[in-house]
């Protein structure tokens, strides 16, 4: 079981728990504002953009090349940007905090 915290641009804190799936699906199930996941998780829409809290970055890790290429054209990209459909839920990411991009 992994605990994942989302902080939205409205300063809402949503704490979720899951064991399987990806983080985008978890956010959509919990109606996290700002995470749409239009493409269902195949990395083609960039509507699940999050900024990982620096303290959580080592747990989450860097994006793949194809994900980086997608983020390259996002205006709000930061060095801690990820598309959360590409982050699998597992014990390894327990406790991470994600800021939902505007």
């Amino acid at each position: 079981m992994a605990k994942i915290t989302f902080l939205t641009s409205d300063n809402e804190t949503i704490i979720t728990e899951a064991t399987t799936g990806n983080v985008m699906e978890l956010a959509v199930q919990n109606k996290v504002k700002g995470i749409d996941g239009d493409c269902g998780g195949v990395c083609s829409c960039a509507t699940c953009h999050v900024h990982v809290e620096p303290a959580s970055w080592d747990k989450v890790g860097a994006p793949s090349q194809l994900e980086s290429d997608m983020l390259e054209f996002d205006d709000n990209v930061s060095e801690f940007s990820r598309l959360c459909c590409q982050i699998d839920v597992s014990d390894a990411i327990d406790g991470i905090v994600l800021n939902v991009a505007k």
Binding site: C39, V42, C43, S44, C45, S64, L66, E67, D69, M70, F73, Q86
Partner: peptide
């Protein structure tokens, strides 16, 4: 079952 599929069939960016 293609996993990563950054297609642009719905366009891309502002005017998607």
């Amino acid at each position: 079952d293609r996993k990563i599929n950054p297609h642009v069939a719905f366009g891309f960016g502002t005017h998607n």
